[in-house]
């Protein structure tokens, strides 16, 4: 059977790739994609710990991921609406150009 460690390693790799997207891309949508990937990695960790944990009858991991998916859906909707608003205003989604509030 597959061990918990292998699932955690896949999840860590998923998280690192999402972080790389957030840090290296110059496009607000790509940053949002990176955030979603990191969130997926965290959800995968929850389910893996639930599967290999001590008390799986309590369904804590499953329920937490269920709520997490709902929050992520709301976050994506609001984030994409913000990107649309910013695009309408600046005609660009390059986050380096959103510098009006710079001191």
């Amino acid at each position: 059977m597959i061990t918990l460690e292998s699932f955690l390693l896949v999840s860590a790799l998923l998280f690192a790739l999402g972080l790389a997207a957030v840090l290296t891309r110059r496009n607000a949508i790509m940053i949002l994609i990176g955030i979603e990937l990191m969130l997926s990695a965290a959800n995968l960790n929850f389910v893996a710990f639930w599967r290999f944990g001590a008390n799986p009858e309590a369904l804590t991991g499953v329920l937490f991921v269920l709520f997490s998916i709902a929050v992520a859906a709301a976050e994506a909707a609001v984030g994409l609406a913000l990107i649309i608003m910013i695009y309408r205003h600046y005609r660009s989604i390059n986050p380096l150009k959103f510098n009006v509030l710079n001191g």
Binding site: V10, L13, L17, A21, I33, G34
Partner: peptide, 9 residues
Amino acid sequence: TLGATLGAV
């Protein structure tokens, strides 16, 4: 999954 993620990034 990891290949698709690498592509997405």
